[in-house]
Design a protein around this nucleic acid. Structure first.
Lengths: 344, 344
DNA sequence: CCCCCTCAGGTAAGCGCTTTCCTGGCAGGC
DNA sequence: GCCTGCCAGGAAAGCGCTTACCTGAGGGGG
């Protein structure tokens, strides 16, 4: 593998000159030399060793992103926003999938720290696990203290700037919409119990219930994995346990799609016999049948804002916290229960 | 930021000892020293500089992955497979999105080369652009000559091992299925012209047409972006230009989903008045209405195999080429044209 | 005509680690 | 009791770059 020194030797100049030319440093270099060096670079197919450059320079360029799983549309959308901003700033982004394993998340923070990334963006639900949360926070603080920037999405509890999706208000919106339509027996398809996203959204739903004079009993809430199959299983459980249900609220769209599959299998018409509302508004939600009513979170924008925070220049004062508004999107999967008229 | 030397000083030992303890090198170290060093590491919150480590060690650990766009389900699935294998091997994977820009792809090869990744996996369609292809190939070869491994998915034309999805046979499968059902006027919703994936799949379709005594005229093929909106637009174009169409073949599932939306808007029943077949079998394909008939490509498995090739040990002989079989999956979106009976 | 300033280009000191090779102390063998 | 062998631990040489600082040549002014 050719090195800077090889190029310098070949061109008959010092390594300093080669370095200057390659990085087109402001220091002037005679045109003749430049050409000779460039020729040598081409001949030797020289590619500078980024690790050596990184070590020699002081600056940090790459940024790290830790998500649960990029192949999940929720994170895919966020990541798209993150990427766009990073690319606009000329930054390489390193994407790490924690696959919802907190230990892996911790390991990735260390890894990104070790790689001298300029910033770490942590996306995805927090965990109801105090020791883990504390350890993660400690690592993030250490990283910050060595000059790294931190931006979190959700997970307001951690160090660094934050973009906080309105999960609780969103849950409220979903619940309120259902109750307003006249539903009284609502089942909740929830994500894993230990995720804060689950509890936040659920809290909003409960608030709506309370406000409308209802409550959500334990059997009306089914916890499962935050994906299609989880939603399908949870829907089945709910249907079994609560024969009188007229509406289902899923805590994300993937689960809602799974629930839709379950309903279809059982020949339960949506929204005729059962209303269904999701959460997130993934791109695909408009293409299922019926198109999914849901609570929209501006996912790509969340990514954009998080990366903008992570990359912002200037002094580090108090961490910035921005909120990302949830918005109700009614499509075809919700309606008033049979034989009812929705209240205004 | 604490360095190895700081830790050594603090613990009253040499940097060599600290390094040995941290990397638990086989060289024995007295228990007392070990404890002192570990204590110092904790107190100083030392995190080794990965760039320095990388530079000092000879080995390459990370692997790079270049895809068009991870947020596209096609690549998301492949990436999942890639990740799994890499993680099993204890490798960090760096994911790079080219967003279908060949120049960016070239830049990423250099970047991954510069970062001393052990391997580069290049996924996603090739381009019908000889100069670009040649430049990419040259870069890949240089990278290989410096000890890097290369594995490509599709893009058989490049250096390195390859996993080749059966695009042409898959296209044939889709076409054959439609003709067998009795369709004679088929429209093709194609991806961008300059992508080899488009032309390969289209070639299979044409072969099927020919075999059944038909042909695909220019107006029967609409080119658009390889995504939902592209599919929707292309479907509209096709419907306008060919009133007699009874079936649509989309060159990927995203486009098929878009076509479905177009058909729905126009009140054209699928499969009653129009059959539709996709390609890839994305996870969501089963959840649209009607569930999409498609040509299944084992995407995650393709990722697994590509990464296995990229990480394989041993001498580098002739590049290995593996094929990933396409399989027809008939679901609800295809049927015999009205008033016809499908041929056996 | 000489001195000094200017500036292109080189020298070399790191950047933070790993690892080879060396040292010094101790135990065991004759 | 001395020599040899062994072993824990340290010194130092890199790894491939960047860059502050130095040098020497050329030009202009006094």
């Amino acid at each position: 593998m050719a090195t800077l020194a090889d190029v310098a030797r070949r061109a008959g100049v010092s390594t300093a000159t080669v370095s200057r030319i390659i990085n087109n440093s402001p220091k002037p270099v005679a045109e003749a030399l430049r050409e000779r060096v460039l020729a040598a670079v081409a001949e030797l197919q020289f590619v500078p060793n980024a690790n050596a450059q990184q070590l020699a320079r002081a600056d940090r360029t790459a940024v790290g992103v830790i998500v649960h799983d990029v192949s999940d549309p929720y994170f895919a959308e966020i990541t798209r926003g993150l990427q766009r901003v990073a690319t606009d700033h000329g930054r390489l982004v390193i994407i790490c999938n924690s696959y919802r394993d907190p230990e892996r998340e911790l390991a990735y923070v260390d890894l990104l720290h070790a790689h001298q990334t300029a910033a770490i963006v942590l996306a995805g639900s927090g965990y109801h696990d105090a020791p883990i949360t504390a350890r993660l926070d400690a690592k993030l603080r250490i990283y910050e203290s060595t000059g790294g920037r931190v931006a979190v999405i959700g997970r307001h509890e951690h160090a660094g700037d934050a973009v906080v999706p309105e999960n609780e208000p969103g849950g409220y919106l979903a619940g309120d919409a259902l109750y307003r339509l006249g539903h009284t027996a609502i089942g909740v398809i929830a994500g894993p119990r230990h995720l804060t996203t689950t509890t936040d959204r659920l809290a909003g739903l409960r608030r709506a219930a309370k406000e409308h004079g209802h409550r959500l009993t334990a059997r009306q809430v089914a916890y499962a994995d935050f994906d299609r199959n989880g939603g399908r299983a949870a829907a089945a459980t709910l249907l079994e346990a609560n024969p009188g249900l007229t509406a289902l609220a899923a805590l994300n769209d993937s689960m809602a799609v799974g629930a839709l599959a379950c309903l279809r299998e059982r020949g339960i018409d949506v929204p005729g016999r059962m209303s269904l509302i999701g959460f997130d508004d993934m791109p695909i939600s408009v293409d299922v049948t019926p198109p999914l009513s849901t609570v929209r979170l501006p996912l790509e924008e969340i990514g954009v804002r998080a990366m903008s925070l992570a990359l912002r220049e200037g002094e580090r004062g108090a961490p910035l916290v921005e909120h990302a508004a949830a918005r109700l999107v009614l499509r075809g999967s919700t309606a008033a229960p049979r034989g009812t008229r929705s209240r205004p």
